[in-house]
Write a protein that binds this DNA or RNA. Structure first.
Length: 446
DNA sequence: GTGGGGGAG
DNA sequence: CGTTCTCCCCCAC
């Protein structure tokens, strides 16, 4: 436990357990959590043991020199189907399969989606002769493929992922409404559907981009003087996309095609009017923008047959916002957690012994070195607690807890999420309290 | 800026 | 599990 990696994982595991407990008691939600050192690994490990558990990918994270697969990261990843790795979608997976199989990977023609399952694993790709970032770059390159994709995929195959945890935006970059159709081949029907989509788009824009701004007097903040609406963001572009029905193959079966075509135009300013009647805004948008866009997209009088129509508001220009969307902004929570957790930073040599009481709530990895057994626990060297009793006490102060901070708007409370043991006086994060008491009991039983 | 590709959930 | 709907980022032009 002097190993910083062990300590970090253990701390994260207990934070996860605490958050899941609070989620269950406060909201009645179950949740599944994965704990590891980056987004890729924690996401994948978090998908095991659904729907109500947590899993930590335990060390060793790196292999011995003489045994390439003696680490748990490699053993965990290697049996995954290549297309199951986040960041490797259908197209990329097909290219990788084709390279490993030395022929085009079979695709399930009976299905519109998914297909294949020739089962090419991460290991199959990673161990293929001459496999390297450069090889992958060559295999994968093509129109529209970003540079550096080879290095990116190689990293993923080896469990490496530098992707940062991002911050949720207060407004989306795009709002789109779409519907799919069995058959849509007359202008009449198209206009009818465009009217429906336009209505839903304008409604969504009001719902997501319009803020109910209540002007209040300082002395009586509970009484709004007047409620003014204002746009949080203006989409500058409107785009119409369709998906034409893919042409029938000579052999009779359907072609898998998601190909879309689109045309876009400036978003007319009248859609932002707050005085005009919404129904008339929708009708103007339909006649003055969407129908002309459709004629540009499909100039032929007939002959087209659409399976999908999409209307999108894009190119979002954020309105300067003084008050950030509270509740969606989790960066504040992390900033406060930094404050709270600074005193327990694992790099620091703390005199306090209770750190030793923190072990992962549950430590399990899937996969093993022989490849014969799909599920093995590598937990002999570290305590395993499944369904831990590590639960916060009812007397816990909600306002000062880690989760309480989520909703809290008060930065000054940051360092109050500490618990002081009444037996030994040690201070620690609230979520470590259960483990600490367990540690006390363990000492007495010795 | 426009239109398309690939991908996530 | 597969499909649908929505959203994101990247790229060439």
């Amino acid at each position: 436990l002097s190993d910083p990696l062990h300590l970090r994982l253990a701390l994260a595991s207990h934070l996860a357990h605490y958050l899941r407990t609070r989620l269950a008691s406060d909201m009645g939600y179950t949740a599944t959590v994965g704990v590891s050192t980056n987004k890729l690994l924690s996401k994948l490990v978090g998908n095991t043991h659904k729907p109500n558990a947590q899993t930590t990918l335990v060390p060793p994270y790196v292999s011995d020199k003489d045994n390439e697969t003696s680490d748990n990261v490699t053993r965990f990843l290697d049996t995954y189907e290549i297309g199951k790795i986040p960041g490797i979608g259908f197209k990329t997976a097909q290219k990788l399969r084709a390279h490993v199989l030395q022929r085009p990977a079979n695709i399930d023609t009976g299905l519109v989606y998914g297909a294949t399952k020739e089962h090419v694993s991460v290991r199959d790709v990673r161990m293929y002769p001459a496999m390297s970032p450069d090889t992958l770059e060559r295999i994968l390159r093509g129109p529209g493929v970003p540079q550096g994709i080879g290095a990116r995929i190689w990293s993923l195959l080896n469990g490496c992922d530098e992707t940062e945890v991002g911050q949720a935006r207060e407004t989306p970059r795009q709002i789109s409404i779409e519907d799919s159709y069995m058959r849509l081949d007359t202008l009449d029907a198209v206009v009818k559907e465009l009217r429906v989509l336009a209505k839903r788009l304008v409604e969504r824009m009001h719902m997501d981009l319009l803020e109910e701004d209540e002007d209040r007097v300082q002395d009586a903040p509970s009484v709004p003087l007047m409620t003014a609406k204002r746009w949080l963001a203006h989409p500058r572009t409107i785009r119409l996309s369709t998906r034409p029905r893919p042409p029938q193959n000579p052999n009779g079966n359907r072609n898998r095609s998601f190909a879309r075509v689109s045309r876009s135009a400036p978003m007319p300013s009248f859609v932002f009017s707050l005085k005009d009647d919404i129904a008339s805004v929708i009708e103007r948008l339909l006649c003055e923008t969407l129908v002309p866009l459709f004629r540009r997209l499909h100039p032929e009088k007939s002959g087209w047959n659409l399976t999908l129509v999409n209307v999108a508001a894009t190119n979002m220009m954020d309105t300067a916002s003084e008050k950030g969307g509270i509740g969606r902004d989790i960066s504040k929570m992390f900033k406060q957690q930094d404050e709270v957790l600074r005193q327990w930073k694992v790099e620091e040599e703390e005199e306090e012994e209770p750190a030793a009481a923190i072990v992962p709530v549950q430590t399990t990895i899937t996969g093993d070195s022989s490849g014969l057994s799909p599920k093995v626990d590598y937990s002999s060297d570290i305590a395993v607690m499944v369904g831990s009793e590590d639960v916060p006490t009812p007397s816990q102060e909600v306002e000062n807890s880690a989760v309480g901070m989520w909703a809290s708007d008060d930065e000054s409370k940051a360092d109050q999420d500490s618990f002081c043991c009444d037996e030994c006086g040690a201070s620690m994060p609230t979520f470590a309290m259960g483990a600490h008491y367990r540690w006390h009991r363990h000492r007495y039983s010795e």
